[in-house]
Design a binder for these strands. Structure first.
Lengths: 189, 189
DNA sequence: GTCTATACTAGGATAGAC
DNA sequence: GTCTATCCTAGTATAGAC
């Protein structure tokens, strides 16, 4: 993806954008960085994203929303399967998404932006939707709404908090431990 | 702090830097932004921070480390007082530091930076030190080391995770609820 | 759909007067 | 210790050829 001419599909480009923005946030990634990372010239990038860098951010947020939808929300909503396997699938997806505790959360990174600057795109609703999907699954399993909401919110608090603490302290195992505790708290009687 | 000439103490400048960097992260804040926010010309800023923007980031991280030390670590280590009041003081300080769930964490914001760029300054050790101080306090109260470490880590996971979720979803009350749960989990029998 | 070249703005940093 | 003025690089974006 680096030698000679670089005919890239938009999907490949967006995957690279995802890698870059999740680490550097919106302001921390320049179009030059993106050009280097993809092997594409700046003009090629502007061909795919006429609105420039903010367009690229929009695309990458949409990509993340879609990934979560496919790998987390849809399985969670599949009432034909028992709750514990759906929760396990969610945790596996989270493990993969966050590189076992080594890769930053795009939502968190994109929220870091001074007031009045671009970014955002309601990226926070990705996490709201995730919480809502967990709560729905728990309610289907007979848990009351307020308890289901509390457990679902607690699950995302644990996942996102553990990811930050694992990366900040260098104690990666903190993330895996938190995933296991999340499972227990969601499936408690 | 905006009219006419602006003789600012370094403390005042650093306080403003803290406000800016915690929201925008390192890359999201320009020296021009800082100049506007403080009312000082760029040259004045470079007088106080000869190393430029990275010097400012270093100063603000030191400020945060110092604030946490004074308002959180020192009270936690005061063996002359009962554990529950020390934990309550810590939670009050966290409530204040994070604006009741509305103000971002400087550590989290400063960790958002593409590889090979400035920032960092081992900012993550601020959270490691915090966790260690909680664990020490719990151990003084007779809790075993591994349990104390787990509870302390869980506390920071909850605080940082809840802050992110509260801000991302716009449900600020999530932060306060998490602080109360943190208290319960730390002081459990 | 990609490239080279270029325009233009914003950002980091410095010089020197007051 | 602050200001105005300036420099230079990096960053965003566009033009036009292939």
């Amino acid at each position: 993806m680096k030698s000679g001419q670089a005919t890239s599909s938009k999907e490949e480009i967006v995957a690279e954008l995802f890698r870059l923005f999740r680490c550097g946030g919106y302001e921390g990634v320049s179009v030059g960085d993106i050009s280097k990372a993809t092997g594409l010239g700046k003009s090629s990038l502007y061909h795919h994203f006429p609105g420039g860098k903010s367009d690229m951010a929009t695309a990458v947020v949409a990509f993340a929303r879609d990934w979560i939808g496919t790998h987390i929300l849809v399985p969670l909503k599949d009432e034909s399967r028992p709750l514990d396997t759906r929760v396990d699938d969610m945790l596996d997806a989270a493990r993969q998404l966050y590189g076992g505790g080594t890769s930053p959360c795009l939502v968190a990174s994109m929220m870091v932006t001074a007031d009045g600057k671009p970014a955002d795109n309601n990226v926070g609703t990705i996490l709201s939707d995730w919480i809502a999907a967990i709560s729905s699954a728990l309610q289907q399993a007979g848990i009351g709404k307020s308890e289901a909401d509390a457990r679902a919110t607690g699950a995302l608090i644990r996942i996102e908090g553990a990811l930050l603490i694992a990366r900040a302290t260098g104690r990666i195992e903190v993330f895996e431990t938190a995933l296991e505790e999340t499972r227990d708290s969601l499936l408690a009687p």
